[in-house]
Design a protein around this nucleic acid. Structure first.
Lengths: 179, 179
DNA sequence: TCAAAAGTGTTTTCTGTACACCCATGC
DNA sequence: GCATGGGTGTACAGAAAACACTTTTGA
């Protein structure tokens, strides 16, 4: 009674996974009859995006019931939770095409190849390396941090970060991020 | 307890406005504290699209509290209902660009000019007549009904209808409607 | 010196945009 | 015959797509 639905989502995410300060957005409200055979339940589902590399330690190591799975390896889920998951994936696939949410799934500094692999996995198709770089760099929303990868057994790639401020002001002015 | 949230939306819409059998979609769930100062309320909002021309008679004439307004003439709304309305408009503006929901706001048979005016009003910018027609007809989703407008004081325009079947199968095959 | 991924330009094709006039109809 | 909106094609520019080799680095 004293907590907004958004705040409840933030709290639950933290309690179950230890994850805080990430992209979190309301997904959909599931309200069909019989989704839980025990009683009538309406669920306001949320989804969060974060980078595995930036998970808080406790999230990956503590002994809670929550675990991380590769999408292809998610075990059978209870109730209508498979439907909810598919709904979230559909949202991500749509949204990533016209909003820069891909960056939420990467560390703050990332290489262009990481970014490209991310898009390829989510969109489930291959992208041309040169065209991909051309397009993204032309938007002028990626900042070269001057740093490079370390501990790789090949030529080290430049690390970029996403210019959130600049995106916000461009968006204000009617610009649409589009891949 | 015995009605799904979707069904409740369908029922409410009918009770308040007499409108049935229209596009109806869940919009967003509003769950902040204090949205209703009297008590804690979580609202699952829905929005519907229909053509004024196809409204059932009782909807426009009966003496219920519900009324139709031009968007620019909506009076001050209670609680956070202004926010909800803006959310619906934002959804419509986004969605109309990549899904064929504009047709939900027109009669089953419509002219290309009607369609263009609709898009211009929702997107709030002018479109070029020739380019608009070229693009839409090229998608091959509009069927010429062979009929024409009547009772107009100028050359009568062809009436088209949207090919829902064809769109469904194209969509299946990966096609995306885009304006 | 080899393996592995980083990085880089040009050409061709397609798509979007700009633009102006004749046509049909009712009054 | 005139006012009103219906209907049509072309030229140009910018974006998307196709495509292959050299560079850097650690092992």
């Amino acid at each position: 009674m004293t907590e907004s639905v958004d705040d409840a989502a933030i709290r639950e995410l933290k309690e179950e996974t230890g994850v805080t300060d990430v992209f979190l957005e309301q997904l959909y409200t599931f309200g069909s009859l019989g989704r839980d055979p025990r009683e009538r339940v309406v669920s306001v589902a949320y989804y969060a995006l974060t980078s595995l590399q930036e998970l808080p330690l406790e999230a990956s190591t503590d002994a809670s019931d929550a675990q991380w799975f590769e999408l292809a390896e998610v075990p059978p889920l209870g109730f209508d939770h498979e439907e909810i998951l598919q709904c979230a994936i559909a949202r991500l696939r749509n949204k990533i095409r016209y909003e820069p949410i891909g960056f939420e799934l990467l560390p703050a500094r990332f290489t262009l190849s990481q970014l490209q692999r991310l898009y390829e996995q989510i969109l489930e198709r291959e992208l041309d390396k040169r065209n991909f770089r051309k397009k993204l760099l032309k938007m002028d929303l990626l900042v070269d941090t001057g740093e490079k990868e370390t501990e790789v057994a090949h030529r080290a790639a430049k690390l970029y970060k996403f210019d959130t401020q600049k995106y916000a002001s461009l968006k204000q002015a009617g610009f649409t991020f589009e891949l």
